[in-house]
Design a protein around this nucleic acid. Structure first.
Lengths: 171, 171
DNA sequence: CTTCTATAGTTCTAAAATTGAACTGTCAAA
DNA sequence: TTTGACAGTTCAATTTTAGAACTATAGAAG
């Protein structure tokens, strides 16, 4: 499977992965949320090669996650800032951070704490049901095919129909 | 940067990315949440090469996200099932799906709908503050260094201190 | 018994992606 | 006239991934 095929799978998760599902893209986005905006800033914060950084930024712009905005003329320079589509990735970022906080911390404790401006407290992000407000867990959720579904209920990705069968004995 | 260095960054998100931050791992985990448990099941559902599948499963087991459990003797066979650590990835999965549902659907609509058993309704996952219950957005959250932090407030990853400077003119 | 099928891998080569390091170009300041 | 900051681009050398075949075990089919 190629990366771009991923974006066309009848599965929202696969499509999202097609956009942000690689190491560097995720780290670049983390930097965006930490207010990094410029090429050099990303490069020195992440240690990513300039080659890949340029490519990833281009892709994120193309997909509408970042916008490339001039901040000076003369030597033309641009900043990369999150669009609304990009800002909407926030829950994903918080979910990633929270899992790391829960399962990957060492004796020293969490690297970062998060304060919610509205209530002034340090918090953890919690995923809840939009209808009843209860926290969600995998076992309480049942999946149904939606209008954009393709095959059977649980078989949502490609069906590599196991071609007839080559199989052959050596010599 | 190597993958395994990532797991030691003083950043929970980087560490999480070190575990699940690649295309195939994320897709394998999706299958786990859709109840796939066996090698062939993953392989035919995803079209991943057997080589990579074996490697990724091994890694997920090593990191405690999956458990490898025998389900028959004779030709010894095993199933891969989510540990609690793995089940805790659910909010990440839902966040990925929800972003795709919001920004990557075509005219046909969502591929999948989710029903919350507890309240019986179709729902969307919402990320809220554990303290006040309000939905979260990036702009309302302020980041502080925690006990496990390393350098300055906003500079949490490696500081590729731009070595002295090679720079030289050709010829 | 010999072959077929199912399951879970392993091995190998070719192709694609990533790394590391240098190079280009513009303009300002020293 | 040279140096520095910034934003890339280019290219060879590695590393990963894709694709396909091969191994192994054991029950069922013929």
């Amino acid at each position: 499977m190629k990366w771009d095929e991923l974006e066309e799978e009848p599965c929202s998760m696969a499509r999202t992965i097609g956009v942000i599902g690689d190491r560097w893209t995720l780290l670049i986005l983390r930097e965006c949320f930490l207010r990094t905006r410029r090429f050099e800033g990303f490069q020195s914060a992440l240690g990513i090669t300039r080659h890949l950084l340029a490519e990833r930024l281009k892709k994120l712009v193309r997909l509408g996650v970042l916008r490339r905005i001039p901040y000076q003329e003369s030597p033309k320079r641009h900043e990369y800032i999150l669009t609304q589509k990009g800002l909407d990735l926030y829950p994903i970022m918080m979910a990633l951070v929270h899992w790391g906080d829960t399962h990957m911390v060492d004796e020293r404790g969490r690297p970062l704490l998060h304060e919610h401006r509205k209530c002034g407290k340090m918090f953890d992000p919690v995923m809840v049901c939009s209808e009843c407000g209860e926290p969600l867990s995998a076992k309480e959720v049942h999946v149904h095919p939606g209008p954009g579904a393709r095959p059977a209920p649980e078989r949502v990705l490609l069906d590599k129909k196991a071609k007839p069968k080559p199989r052959r004995k050596a010599a």
